[in-house]
Amino acid sequence: MARHKEQDEYLEALWVMREKGKDSMTSLTSTIGDGFDAKIMDELQSQDMVKVSEDGRISLTEKGEIPARRIIRAHRLGERLICDVLGGKFEAGACEFEHMLDTGLLNSVCILLGHPKECPHGKPIPEGECCRRNAKVAESSVIPLTDLETGVCAHIAYVNGNENGRVQKMGVLQIRPGGKVSVIQKYPCYVLDCEGGNVAMGNEEVSSIYVWKPSGARPCDEECTFPLSNDLVGKKRGWGFKSRWKQRACRRR
């Protein structure tokens, strides 16, 4: 799971390097910084996402282009949204943003912002499918859990019902924003799979749960990428370097 996020960072770095016209291993190691891990590059190569030529030039393959494009698009759209529209500090937010959004949600944000061409730093935002068809209306990206098909994994966006303790009650069962959930059955009442536990629930209780519309139909026990904050764990001895490096890598962009 963690691997996906790390690979994302390398693909992103390669895209940025290409924009600057750089393609050497040295510039990649300097872009990534202290935490550079040759293993991840090997993985990317073996997965045919990145190719290294004989004279040591690194470039994205056609296959690698797709995720890299999505990540860059998410990052820069995120900056646009958080900085310009919401007026917040965009750096930290956008870094999380890029891992968070799937293609459908990303397009919705893009439509909402009117298909922006550049990020606040003036760098180009890769065009999305929505820009090409000049879509005007964003599809709903958050759906009630009751609309989710059975067996499909989705991430929870939010839960209603703070006043009567329902949110807390569901929270301890890991039904909380960011949690993974899938519907096992809907009748005679709902049975949900959330983070390994099965929970039975009435219709009314389930209708207070809203999820991000999933882009594919994957069940929950298959691998599923999602942001996992390392900030807290990062403070611990021995395994903090990765998250520190990630924060730094994020700041550089």
């Binding site: 009567n164 329902r166 009650k169 569901m170 069962l173 009442c189 049975v191 536990g197 099965n198 929970v199 039975a200 629930m201 009435g202 009314e204 209780e205």
Partner: peptide, 10 residues
């Protein structure tokens, strides 16, 4: 009415 939120064992 009270909420029906029941954990089911495997």
């Amino acid at each position: 009415r009270s909420d029906f939120i029941q954990e089911l064992p495997p």
